[in-house]
Design a protein around this nucleic acid. Structure first.
Lengths: 249, 249
DNA sequence: TTAATAGTGTCTTTCAGACAATATTAT
DNA sequence: ATAATATTGTCTGAAAGACACTATTAA
């Protein structure tokens, strides 16, 4: 069966037209708070609501489409900027009929972990995008509340058994900064001493640069040693979230 | 902006036509071996190759489309049969240009965990589908080798921290049967004594029926106690795979 | 009787988490 | 000097894994 007969056998009119888009849950930590990149919608439907950045997939891979959307909305350029250090992974695909009132839209959602990026610059396409603390990101357009919730759960789980927390930090970081990443994403403080020892005990999680910070903390304290991400893809043993009995059932 | 102007603003001709399909990685355990449901392709492209079952998404949710495809290929009926005990979850979406040589096809892949289902019956639509041990499932059509590999990795990981192994067993099972599920999926034997104690120590993993098997094992042994799945959604503590140092980097 | 399997006991090592102690540095 | 933070030490309990042992049942 060649393409012609394939197309003849499956008349596109037998199936309603479907649009394929990508939506991006881009997370970063700003002012110690886990934040998500949102865009302001000026048009119906959901005019005035905020939404996850996204758009149509072109003649490109889904991964590439997600990176392109992220670049467009942040105003940053792949190849320059910190956009190369952004971790991007597919989250889940949403395709319920009616999720977009205009037509059938199937959207592959992506999850991005970004180091602290600059506020999208005014005057560009990205002017309508900005970072919002996740606890203030409510009442989003379409089914984006659900997508964001799924993304947050994925992010929280991934910190446990992968070194992705380092994707939120700069190229060099202190153990304390890494701890603050975990605290921001999990929404709870962690015991500094135990965290410190645990991170260093996981093979390949971090490696020492041999350097220390130039200064101590804002309000005093010794200068901390600097580390960079190690070569581990999985953390073993994992850094488990503080046990919540009610999480299990 | 109403639908008319939306469609006017986004002329479908600006974007190539995209087809949306679902593909299903349906796993079960047959004769102690982890097996996957495959269909024989009679037509080009990939005529003579085997492929994952799948098809076009209709006016339905993606989840529903996956369940429908699974029902069609197995010849089983939701509402009857064991199809209700099948666990279905979204795996990942594949949309690289060129993955189908005929046109742009974006496919949402699903992962199914099934108790031992009957061989699809001849004479039906399902006649061309059959179960194949995963180690013999090579050289599949399209990018289905990659999809299967992703599905297997997901399945192996999920056995660690969820009670999904029970989805491979019948409504009542012995600890030994549950151990064989883990052994088949992970591809390695597990220590019977330690496994037994560990399963019973995880709250909500299994609950006793108070009954035992009618007979002992084929070649002797005591009658084993029967259990059914408990109410836990997550296993805490998890049943970790035997440590493979090389898995970590 | 023999072999296979179910289920339990025990010991060692690792790890999580609580708590404490010391060292260093900004103010 | 004072307070804050980095880093290390110690202890307890949970859990993994190795090994051994007893009990039960099919052939």
């Amino acid at each position: 069966m060649d393409e012609a007969s394939f197309l003849a056998g499956y008349d596109p009119r037998d199936y309603p037209a479907v649009a394929v888009t990508v939506d991006v849950v881009a997370l970063t930590i700003r002012d110690g708070k886990l934040s998500v990149l949102l865009v302001e919608r000026g048009e119906q439907p959901f005019a005035g609501h905020r939404a996850l950045p996204g758009g149509f997939v072109r003649e490109e891979t889904l991964d590439r489409a997600a990176l392109r959307e992220l670049a467009e909305e942040t105003g940053l350029t792949p190849g320059e900027d910190d956009l190369d250090r952004v971790h991007l992974e597919q989250l889940k695909t949403y395709g319920n009929p009616g999720r977009d009132p205009r037509m059938r839209v199937v959207s592959a959602a992506y999850l991005a972990f970004a180091p602290s990026l600059p506020e999208p610059t005014a005057g560009s396409d990205a002017a309508r995008a900005y970072w919002v603390p996740v606890e203030e990101a409510k009442d989003l357009a379409f089914d984006h509340d659900e997508i964001l919730a799924d993304g947050l759960e994925r992010a929280r789980a991934k910190l446990e058994y992968t070194p992705l927390a380092t994707a939120f930090a700069g190229p060099e970081f202190t153990i304390g900064e890494l701890r603050q990443v975990y605290a921001a994403v999990w929404g709870e403080e962690l015991h500094a001493g135990n965290f410190h020892r645990k991170v260093l005990s996981v093979p390949g999680f971090v490696e020492s640069t041999g350097e220390t910070t130039a200064r101590g903390g804002e309000r005093g304290g010794p200068r901390a040693k600097l580390y960079r991400a190690g070569d581990a893809r999985l953390l073993h043993p994992a850094l488990l979230r503080p046990t919540r009995e009610d999480r299990v059932r």
